[in-house]
């Protein structure tokens, strides 16, 4: 199968008070299309940093990251943004919905930004998929945490991405709601590839692949 993502000896150093601090010390991995991958690890181990690098939100210090066969190294910010717009959806831990927009408007936003067609119908359909057809015109402040995260997932799905990154998507939710969100995300595979950073071992165990980030390296969990 074609890998949608390849990590080859990825190193990343952050700068703290002017001193370089190694976070990732040679990560190698590849993710095949249609699978689900959970990245687990202790707090501060660099999971979110790794996710940012994989999504092209930051640039590794050395090594290579290839998304859909294209190397991210050397790409401009706008080229990476275009790649994300075309292939990637992103779900944040704290939802990151636009407060002044309704659920429907939040989901329509990516399509509007890229001038696509049938925007409203597509957004309504995706919101229907996450079972929020009755909340289309509600603002984020009047939605529960679970509902907000479902809106965020709908926003990530609406542009029909091939790959979804989720950064601790159930971190701010209660157990029941978290399970509902987990099932929703897992149901996206195999049509979509899912890469999720999580502390929730139960959620991780339901993913097809699991890796543990330990001392800056990825260790597959069997």
């Amino acid at each position: 199968m074609t890998p949608v993502l390849e990590l080859i000896d990825v190193h990343y150093e952050a700068s703290f008070a002017g001193n370089p601090v190694p976070i990732l010390k040679g990560c190698d991995y590849f993710v095949e299309a249609g699978t689900s991958l959970a990245i687990v690890g202790r707090s501060g181990s660099g999971k979110s940093t790794l996710l940012s690098l994989m999504a092209g939100l930051d640039e590794q210090t050395t090594g290579s990251i290839r998304l859909f066969g294209q190397s991210l190294m050397g790409m401009s910010e706008d080229q990476r943004a275009a790649l994300r717009a075309q292939h990637i959806g992103f779900v944040f831990q704290n939802f990151q919905l636009i407060a002044g927009m309704t659920a429907l408007e939040n989901v329509m936003l990516p399509l509007e930004l890229f001038g696509e067609s049938d925007i409203k119908q597509r957004a309504e359909a995706v919101l229907g998929f996450v079972e929020l057809s009755h909340r289309l015109h509600h603002y984020p402040s009047s939605l529960s945490g679970g509902e907000q995260q479902r809106v965020a997932i709908a926003r990530a799905l609406v542009s029909r991405p091939a790959l979804i990154f989720a950064d601790e998507p159930t971190g701010n939710l209660d157990e029941t709601t978290a399970q509902m969100i987990q099932q929703l995300l897992l149901s996206l595979t195999p049509k979509t590839t899912l890469i999720v950073v999580t502390h929730d071992l139960d959620f991780a165990s339901q993913c097809q692949q699991r890796v543990h980030l330990v001392q800056g390296k990825l260790v597959p969990v069997t």
Partner: peptide, 11 residues
């Protein structure tokens, strides 16, 4: 802006 950048918005 982080959300927009993540969604793929151009500069």
């Amino acid at each position: 802006w982080l959300v927009l950048r993540t969604l793929g918005a151009q500069q």
